[in-house]
């Protein structure tokens, strides 16, 4: 079952030449990256996708790709210029408050109330979601404990480190016990320890059946956490698939680095079935292959047949990052 269905979603901003009151720098940078007719910026341009219930869906893309604008539309903060968002078969435009009641949101910037304590921040969110007093207190303490903030619950959030604020934000996002959780760059700029805690907790909540939509420009996080990834660039989705399928797109990047004693005849090797191209490097051969497993077998066979001593063999598989860069450069499409 789909938790979210998005059809032909667009968001256009009109920008004046001079940055005036309320004009955002981020929009300005968008304008620079995506200039179009008379100051109209297509921050999100006719995107369609669906998110299955219980999956972690990633929106991956460079800065200004439209990820945050998409999340803001999905969470009801921004009204789309065009298109339709349906959440559990309900139109978001017509049922915003009802739908927001089942959502949790962790925006990109650390935006806890710095003058409130950790507990007061959580209580505020609990009250705004209509959580009962008793339940609020229980939930807040449970979350603070889970996110290792219980000892700081009565300290003002301005005394928290960036990682602690991000964890408090996550607590706030989870305070409503959401069915769908939106995470906008959840580990951006965090130390390793905080990143690990957050990643582990995302996995834990996902295992409990929560649908999670996260934006990131960190390939490793997308690769590690997401069931499916949509790659966004210039307001459009340029690829949508499971991480391993996206990686497969860059087949020509599968390669072997072969360290061998003696000379090999490049032309002979290139005639082998799974070998595409051989480049002689300093001290080794870089062999671009079609099928990594079969190519290794062929290279070993070739070495045996020609009495060559194989010293070392390194495999090279494509990283999601390379697929990502190739896609946004328009070299690969799905």
């Amino acid at each position: 079952m789909n938790a979210i269905e998005v059809k032909n979603l667009s968001k256009h901003f009109t920008l004046s030449k001079k940055r005036g009151v309320g004009q955002k720098k981020s929009n300005q940078s968008l304008a620079n990256k995506n200039p179009s007719i008379s100051g109209l910026v297509k921050a999100v341009d006719e995107i369609s996708f669906d998110v299955k219930r219980g999956e972690i869906f990633g929106l991956l893309g460079p800065n200004g790709a439209g990820k945050t604008t998409t999340i803001r539309m999905l969470t009801g903060i921004l009204k789309p210029t065009n298109g339709k968002i349906t959440i559990f078969n309900k139109d978001l435009d017509k049922n915003r408050i009802l739908i927001q009641q089942i959502m949790g949101h962790v925006p990109e910037m650390a935006n806890v109330y710095l003058d409130l304590t950790g507990m007061q921040n959580l209580e505020l969110i609990g009250e705004l979601y209509g959580v009962s007093r008793k339940e609020r207190k229980n939930r807040a303490e449970l979350l603070l404990k889970k996110f290792e903030l219980l000892n700081w619950k009565d300290s003002k959030a301005k005394k928290y480190s960036k990682g602690m604020r991000q964890r408090l934000l996550l607590c706030m996002g989870l305070m409503s016990d959401p069915v769908i959780l939106f995470l906008d760059e959840p580990t951006s700029g965090l130390d390793v320890q905080s990143s690990i805690i957050i990643k582990e907790l995302i996995k834990e909540y996902h295992a409990s059946g929560m649908t999670i939509i996260l934006t990131t420009h960190d390939m490793d996080i997308a690769n590690e956490l997401c069931n499916r990834i949509a790659i966004m660039n210039k307001g459009k989705i340029i690829g949508l698939d499971e991480p391993h399928n996206l990686r497969k797109l860059k087949q020509e990047y599968q390669a072997l680095d072969v360290y061998i004693k003696g000379e090999i005849k490049i032309q002979e090797i290139e005639e082998l079935t799974n070998i595409k191209k051989v480049q002689k490097k300093r001290g080794y051969y870089h062999i671009i292959v079609d099928n990594l497993k079969l190519a290794i077998g062929e290279v070993i066979e070739y070495a045996k047949a020609n009495n060559l001593q194989l010293e070392k063999l390194n495999t090279y598989e494509p990283k999601l990052e390379e697929v990502f860069i190739k896609m946004i450069n328009g070299e690969t499409t799905l």
Partner: peptide, 28 residues
């Protein structure tokens, strides 16, 4: 998904939630 959630879209509930905003404003 929607059934077991606190009612949100009524005047009384929104009014009640506005007092939470007040509490926050006065504190900050």
């Amino acid at each position: 998904v929607f059934a077991n959630r606190p009612k949100a879209n009524t005047f009384f509930n929104q009014l009640k939630r506005s007092f939470s905003i007040t509490k926050k404003d006065l504190r900050i």
